[in-house]
Design a protein around this nucleic acid. Structure first.
Lengths: 155, 155
DNA sequence: CGAAATTGAATTGTGCACAATGTTTAATGG
DNA sequence: CCATTAAACATTGTGCACAATTCAATTTCG
């Protein structure tokens, strides 16, 4: 991978592999998430809320943004759609009027039951050994950490 | 990773790592591609065209779609934008009026010079060993292959 | 205290992705 | 040969991503 010739070859690009694999995996999620009428980013949002609220914490839009690496330009309309569907409530914080807090509704929690089987069902559909996926996740996190200068979580 | 509890944890999801890493890498490309006034998908498109035309082949929209795993709903407007900028020409094939062929213009080829340094510059910015990236690419391709049932290219 | 800077969301605009549908052209099968 | 089917691309509509800007509320600091 020395010449610009080779470096500009599509097949040699890690980044294209990343780009294509990401879309392929998301495509696998799509039919499963369709049962819940969620898109993949909406699903990730619910994951954070389920997790955070379970831990007894309140989630603010900025928390979500940090967690998912998304800004308000993406999150605001997404959260409005989830709120319109009655899965969560968006409320201005009384203590700090700038902050919007997110609270799951009954329906939002109910959806968790249906979501429980998704990770397993997804893995079944992929013909890849779990060990290999764990290795992949580790590599991806390493790259992410290098790119963002973040602390590596446990694992 | 047995309980639904753990399976639904954001940090345990390979797919979120994939999603986040993909966006992080694309973000690294952005300032470099801004010099060429290209988005990342536009850059990938140009890569294919440079490569294909160098090899003496004609590229059709459907070829691009196969290569990048994108459909006409994505490619048609993207290609129109590139054509509007004078980087390529879209022409209906005379032999088969359904087909649209893509031909690089002078300006399209000229852009290749400026693109030559991008892969190198990108790698410099990432604090990850090339060996590790190669391993990552291999893993990603394996997943992609498993998901799409495609033949694995050389490497 | 009061001006300036900072923060948290919302808004606006552009460009993907992708499902669904439509349109034209070509291939196929009686 | 003609009807049917399939192929290639275009169009429409929805939902991300993200840059850039705006706006209100809060902090910071002189």
């Amino acid at each position: 991978m020395a010449t610009p010739e080779e470096a500009l070859s599509l097949d040699n690009q890690v980044c294209f592999a990343l780009y294509a694999a990401n879309r392929a995996v998301t495509a696998r999620y799509r039919p499963l998430l369709a049962d819940l009428e969620l898109t993949y980013p909406q699903y990730l949002t619910m994951l954070v809320l389920w997790e955070q609220e379970q831990a007894g914490g309140v989630t603010r839009v900025s928390d979500l943004g940090r967690r998912l690496r998304l800004d308000s330009g993406t999150l605001t309309p997404l959260l409005k759609r989830l709120a319109d569907r009655g899965l969560l409530e968006r409320r201005r914080s009384a203590l700090d009027e700038r902050v919007v807090t997110l609270t799951l509704t009954e329906a939002g929690w109910a959806l968790r039951e249906k979501a429980g089987s998704i990770p397993e069902r997804l893995l079944c559909g992929i013909g890849v050994e779990p060990e290999r996926l764990k290795a992949l996740r580790r590599e991806l996190k390493a790259v992410l950490t290098a790119l963002e200068g973040e602390a590596v979580p446990s694992d």
